[in-house]
Amino acid sequence: MTIPVLAINLDRSKDRWEELVKRAALVDVAPERIPAVDGKAIDPAEWHEFDARGFRLRHGRHPLAAEYGCYLSHIRALDRVIESGAPHAVIVEDDTDFKTDFLPRLEALTRLSPAPDVIKLYNHRLSGFLPKATSAAGDVVGRCIHGPLGSAMGYLVTRQGAVKLRRALLPISLPYDIALERGWSHGASIVTTRKPLLKRVKSASTISPAGYKPTKFPFYMRIPTALFRGQDYLRRAAYAARG
């Protein structure tokens, strides 16, 4: 079966696209380019579908222009999944690399029953992993009690899942990687593989090369954020414990 691989890439990052295509070819993947939204080229006064107050309260810092662009780029990729009519697609960012056994493992994941709406193929961390199913290729998928897991670098999504995410993930009030994994909020069934199918290429971040610390509010202004995260932690744990 052919599973579309959609790769998000900025117009000004042609070198990253060319390198991604080379890496993908090594595992017989021909990615389709999704032109990324360049948040840095948009005046913050013109940010649409963005809940500025909600972002500050939930995340405890100022938003970055590149985060805004990244979020809308993933929305654009979800739109392409829906438009394509394909039952499944993979969405990746352009700093993705592929494990040598990527395709057979991916195809086995599409045959899981019942099929999750989203399967994350890479995370920064996995803590309190609870297994839910095992693919024919041996990949264990599950959910984590602790989080956020970090990264939206690559995930398998069904067309139905793309529809659910597209309806629920706007307006923006969190970075995309955090919003994506909140299945208890957006209603899509989301799991992650215990062992990644992808790996990250070492490259400079296009979102925050200087890190996030300069954008954080003082401690006393982050009390609403702490309350939100505490509630979300409990909801995450309950979601992970479900069958």
Rank of each mutant, 00 (worst) to 15 (best):
K216D: 01
K213C: 05
K195M: 09
P131V: 15
V118Q: 01
L10H: 03
R56I: 07
R166W: 06
P114R: 06
F50E: 05
E46H: 11
D15A: 12
K216N: 00
R12A: 14
P4I: 03
G128L: 10
F217N: 10
D38G: 04
G243S: 14
L121Q: 04
L170V: 07
T193P: 02
G85T: 05
R167D: 02
T206N: 14
I207M: 07
F217Q: 12
G187R: 14
P224K: 13
I145D: 00
A238M: 07
L121P: 03
T100F: 01
G54R: 11
T96K: 07
H59R: 09
G150N: 09
P4L: 09
G211L: 15
T158E: 01
L57D: 04
L20T: 09
R125N: 03
A25R: 14
F228P: 05
G54F: 08
R159S: 12
T192L: 14
N123R: 14
L72Y: 00
T96Q: 10
A115M: 12
G154E: 03
V118S: 03
Y71E: 04
W17A: 03
A179D: 04
N123T: 15
L156C: 08
M1F: 05
A115F: 01
W47L: 00
F50K: 06
T100R: 09
P214L: 07
R125L: 12
V191Y: 08
G187D: 05
P44F: 08
I172P: 04
A188W: 13
V140I: 15
H59L: 10
P35M: 13
S205I: 11
Q231H: 12
I172M: 15
S113A: 09
T192Y: 13
S185L: 14
T215E: 04
P116F: 15
A179H: 06
E107L: 11
G54D: 02
D43E: 07
R167I: 03
P116K: 07
S173K: 11
D38R: 04
H186A: 11
P114W: 08
D11W: 13
A66Y: 00
R111S: 06
E49D: 06
E32N: 05
E83R: 14
D95E: 08
R16L: 10
A137V: 10
Y239Q: 08
R58A: 13
S84H: 07
K216I: 02
D232R: 10
G128Q: 02
R105E: 00
L121E: 01
V37E: 02
P148E: 00
L234Y: 03
L149D: 04
G128S: 08
P114H: 06
Y233M: 12
R242S: 15
A36H: 08
F228C: 13
P4A: 08
F217R: 05
L26E: 12
D177N: 05
R23K: 14
L197R: 08
I75F: 05
G154A: 13
K202E: 07
H48M: 06
H88T: 02
I172Q: 10
L109Y: 09
R16S: 09
A77S: 11
G183S: 06
K99F: 00
P175Y: 11
S135N: 01
K14F: 00
V21F: 10
L6Y: 11
T2Q: 11
L234F: 12
V29N: 05
D97K: 08
A115T: 01
S73P: 00
G243W: 10
L170D: 02
D51S: 08
V92L: 11
R23A: 14
L109A: 01
A77P: 10
L106G: 03
G230S: 02
